[in-house]
Design a protein around this nucleic acid. Structure first.
Lengths: 260, 260
DNA sequence: GAGAAAAGGTAACATAGTTTATTGATGGAG
DNA sequence: CTCCATCAATAAACTATGTTACCTTTTCTC
């Protein structure tokens, strides 16, 4: 087992862990695979404050961003100010693979909390597809899961009522955080404001507030400060008509395991 | 310029054309590229009647489906019957690349009209990534555009009013059909029922009807039988707050052109 | 630790969109 | 050609959610 490069400081170690942990949900990575991921994630690192844009609609996409720590979101905005958060980025998440083949971003990426990202270059992906098939597969899996999440959001906005929708979103975030190793029992950090939730669910701030009161009253969530507790995940899931199948958290057959 | 394999009958020729035409929006394909695509599309062809499922949620995904002719859609359904169409498949469209690495479908695919599809195998994609870099790039482009479309739908459902939403959807379909060479001037075939539109926009059938009346009254669309005419695309676009940037219909720099 | 700013909470009222029901048009199957 | 099913159109009553406005609590900053 090789050691990871020394320039990885403690916080980023944990961060890479989120990615690796998530990918290993799907394929078993070899020590060499992990080293390549750790190296790529420690190479070009940038830090951002909270509530700041990382990229704006119209920019030319240059690199793939990997979130090492903090929360961010993709959003789109209409001229009159209406804003929709179309996805959240949690630690270990990556924006679209290969975005750099497009000319222009069709959305913006903004931070919620302070965020550390690693920029992954075209070369990195060439290297991966040439010599690290397990990572390549895992990245495809990530891409497919992201597409599935986006479809589920379409479903969420189109068919679920306000409280179902909110419960569903909370479930999804909780599951994703857990996958990345960022929950403790029934609790996780939760830095989203009610305004963020409004932009993500397509509801007004007032109605988000009402809806959260409802969920609280039904003992489905405890949400105070920046901490979320889910007293009974099962109940929250059923109230949000949440079926985790779209997260595809099931490891493939053994043919994908590292065998060294 | 080689000739395409003889087993391609006329209708499928046109169908492959939709794919090639679309991909060439982004990269210039060589004659050899076109032959490979034509071969793959004529290999394992299946036909379906209208209003029939091609795959169901829970099935194991086996191949990538390419729509040769007809319209289909992806949809998800809740236990109580609420149904959301999360995307439409038009001729030349493909379902997710590499789906076969997942264990289970998280959504269903159903036909709207009669549909002809080609099943593309794992081997085909291996062949492409090994020897046809321009096709590989074009397929990545398709993947990214599909993701962008799904995000735009999220925006559509979350922020746009009923009539904006409807106008936006009609614009999108018109643009996509035009890209595939399936429009004639301001007109195209349009086999969707109002119930389909309801499932896609997250509105009730009644409200879809009202909304279409509104658009008709404002002379934004002429929709009769199974034919859509857009008297003035500009006006429909602005009424739907439609910005085609997310379709990324701009060809990359010349480094991606075929140079033979 | 005071003051300002951001976030959370609540109420009254307005409305976009739903539900249910009925009727009329269209089109495919025999 | 006609029957039956699907699709479109419209109306009336209802409701989930939005808007505006204001107040309280928490958090950040100096």
């Amino acid at each position: 087992m090789e050691s990871v490069p020394i320039r990885l400081i403690a916080a980023e170690m944990i961060a890479v862990t989120a990615l690796i942990r998530k990918l290993e949900q799907f394929v078993r990575l070899s020590p060499a695979d992990r080293v390549v991921l750790a190296r790529a994630s420690s190479d070009r690192v940038r830090k951002f404050g909270p509530r700041v844009d990382i990229t704006r609609e119209g920019d030319r996409p240059r690199d793939v961003h990997l979130i090492l720590s903090g929360w961010a979101c993709r959003y789109k905005q209409l001229d009159d100010g209406r804003r929709q958060v179309v996805s959240f980025f949690l630690p270990g998440d990556m924006c679209d693979l290969n975005v750099f083949i497009l000319k222009e971003m069709d959305h913006s990426i903004g931070t919620i909390t302070s965020v550390t990202i690693a920029d992954l270059s075209r070369d990195f992906f060439d290297e991966i597809s040439a010599g690290y098939p397990r990572i390549a597969t895992a990245l495809w899996w990530e891409t497919l899961v992201n597409a599935a999440i986006q479809r589920e959001w379409t479903m969420n906005l189109g068919q679920r009522t306000a409280s179902e929708r909110m419960a569903h979103l909370l479930c999804e975030i909780f599951f994703r955080l857990r996958l990345a190793g960022l929950t403790e029992g029934l609790t996780c950090e939760f830095p989203l404001t009610q305004a963020d939730l409004a932009d993500a669910t397509g509801l007004s701030k007032v109605h988000v507030n009402r809806t959260l009161q409802e969920l609280r009253a039904a003992d489905l969530v405890i949400l105070r400060g920046k901490v979320l507790t889910v007293p009974c995940l099962e109940r929250l899931m059923s109230s949000g008509l949440f079926n985790p199948n779209y997260l595809h958290m099931d490891r493939e057959g053994s043919q994908l395991d590292a065998n060294e």
